[in-house]
C-alpha cells in the first residue's frame, strides 16, 4: 500500500502581483515517480521548492509527513557540491547529520561508474559528472523523497540508464521521486505520473 508522504492542498503562489501557481493540489505517495513538466517559466522549479519547504506558498496547505518518513533530498539547478572537495569527500561530508562509511561510499561510486574520479576535486570534473555527484548524494542518503530538477540534463546515455536504475531501486524501497522536466517523460523502467504545469 502506498503511504501519503506529502499533500499539497489548493496551493497558490504569487510574486509581485503575478500569479505563478494557482490552486494546485497534489498527493505524493511512496513508491511513485512524479514528473512535473512545462515550458520555461511555468513554475516547475517553484513548485519543487514549495514541496521541499524552501518557498512558502501564498495560500493553501501543505500536509507534510516527512518527519515520520525521513527527510528530503533536493537537487536543484545548482548541484549542491563543494568544488574544493573531492568526489569522495563530497559524499563523506555532504550530509551534516548522517555518517556514511567508506564501503557505502565506494558502493555508490561504483554504481555510478565514477571510481576513476573518486579523488578528483569536484571543480575539475565536467558538468555531467558534477550532476552525478549530486545524484549520488541523494542515493547514499536515507531520504525518502528525492526532489530533482531536470535529472537527465547534462547526462550521457549510460548515465541516464544508471539514474533510471537508481530511481527504480529507490521506489522499490518505498521512496518517492519528484522530478521536473521540459517535456513529458515516457519509456522508463518505472511507472511515471506526468503532470503538466502551465
Amino acid at each position: 500500500m502506498n503511504n501519503l508522504l506529502i499533500q499539497l492542498k489548493d496551493i497558490s503562489l504569487s510574486r509581485n502581483d503575478k500569479s505563478i501557481i494557482r490552486d494546485m493540489s497534489l498527493d505524493i505517495n511512496s513508491s511513485t515517480v512524479l514528473n512535473i513538466y512545462g515550458h520555461n517559466g511555468s513554475g516547475k522549479t517553484t513548485l519543487l521548492k514549495i514541496l521541499t519547504g524552501i518557498t512558502e506558498p501564498t495560500s493553501g496547505k501543505i500536509i507534510n509527513n516527512i518527519d515520520q518518513y525521513g527527510s528530503i533530498a533536493y537537487i536543484g539547478h545548482k548541484h549542491g557540491i563543494k568544488n574544493n572537495l573531492t568526489l569522495n569527500e563530497n559524499l563523506l561530508y555532504g550530509d551534516s547529520e548522517n555518517f556514511y562509511n567508506q564501503n557505502m561510499i565506494d558502493k555508490v561510486i561504483g554504481k555510478y561508474n565514477m571510481g576513476k574520479y573518486k579523488n578528483y576535486l569536484a571543480k575539475n570534473l565536467s558538468h555531467g559528472q558534477q550532476k552525478k555527484i549530486s545524484l549520488m548524494k541523494a542515493n547514499i542518503s536515507s531520504s525518502r523523497i528525492w526532489v530533482i530538477d531536470e535529472p537527465y540534463s547534462a547526462l550521457d546515455k549510460d548515465s541516464v540508464c544508471i539514474v533510471d536504475q537508481s530511481i527504480c531501486d529507490h521506489i522499490n524501497s518505498e521512496g518517492a521521486v519528484i522530478m521536473s522536466n521540459h517535456e513529458l517523460i515516457a519509456n522508463k523502467p518505472f511507472n511515471i505520473n506526468n503532470i503538466e504545469i502551465n
Binding site: 521541499t52 519547504g53 524552501i54 527527510s71 528530503i72 533530498a73 533536493y74 536543484g76 539547478h77 545548482k78 548541484h79 549542491g80 557540491i81 563543494k82 568544488n83 550530509d95 551534516s96 547529520e97
Partner: peptide
C-alpha cells in the same frame, strides 16, 4: 548559497 548546498542545509532544518 552559490553552490546550492544551502538549500539542503535549510530543507533538513532539524538541526
Amino acid at each position: 548559497y552559490d553552490d546550492g548546498t544551502l538549500d539542503m542545509f535549510v530543507i533538513n532544518d532539524r538541526y
